[in-house]
């Protein structure tokens, strides 16, 4: 599940506005925004403060990364690089749904409503608002999010767009039903294995 149409739930907007909420068990409840995304044990070559890893340590890490025990959980490996035809076609829907006339009509109604209540649509983000901040759950952001939610309720924004996307997905899901079922079964297996690895190696994981 995700939130592809932006903030729409009044219950969520009341607490988080547009911000990304705490979704990781390793993070303390209440963290949002910059510290609110789940992290585990990955990194970058150079940290935000300019820090760089020790080359010898990094060589060990790089070698271990290429081991089969790690590669079997690599997302590209699991998803076969995203080259399956069903994935390509679903991606086309996902890339293109904002160009469908029925979706554009919904967005236009939403934008009109938002203007009517004194806010401005975000030109770069469907279902957003000018001035929205994904990192803040401040009261002004909550107030703005509630304006957004109100307009989305008024024009039935999310159910209408969800129906639009679902309608365009339907023929793909029907055509590739067997492949999709097999893929789902494979994902279930690898995720189950991943959970076992996490349980076995809990002592090397970051604990918030």
């Amino acid at each position: 599940m995700s939130q592809p149409f932006g903030a729409w739930s009044r219950e969520v907007a009341e607490q988080y506005a547009f911000a990304v909420g705490p979704v990781d068990p390793y993070l303390a409840a209440g963290d949002v925004g910059e510290e609110g995304l789940p992290v585990a044990f990955a990194g970058a070559s150079v940290g935000p403060d300019g820090f760089a890893p020790d080359p010898e340590d990094q060589a060990v890490i790089d070698a271990c990364y290429l081991e089969a025990d790690a590669q079997r959980f690599d997302l590209v490996t699991v998803t076969s690089g995203g080259t399956a035809q069903w994935r390509v076609e679903l991606e086309q829907v996902w890339i293109g749904w904002q160009t469908y006339p029925e979706a554009e009509a919904v967005e236009a109604e939403y934008a009109s409503c938002l203007t009517d209540v004194g806010a401005e649509p975000n030109p770069d983000l469907w279902g957003g608002a000018s001035g929205m901040d994904l990192r803040s759950a401040s009261q002004p952001q909550i107030d703005l999010a509630l304006l957004v939610v109100g307009c989305k309720e008024q024009v039935r924004y999310v159910p209408r767009l969800a129906d639009v996307v679902a309608a365009h997905q339907a023929p793909v899901l029907e055509t590739y039903a067997a492949e999709l079922g097999a893929y789902r079964a494979d994902v279930d297996l690898v995720v189950e294995a991943a959970r076992e690895v996490l349980e076995l190696n809990a002592d090397v994981m970051v604990q918030g």
Partner: peptide
């Protein structure tokens, strides 16, 4: 979960 498991495997190695 996959990301964390991958990293756990790297760390264990």
């Amino acid at each position: 979960t996959l990301e964390m498991a991958r990293n756990a495997a790297v760390a264990a190695c």
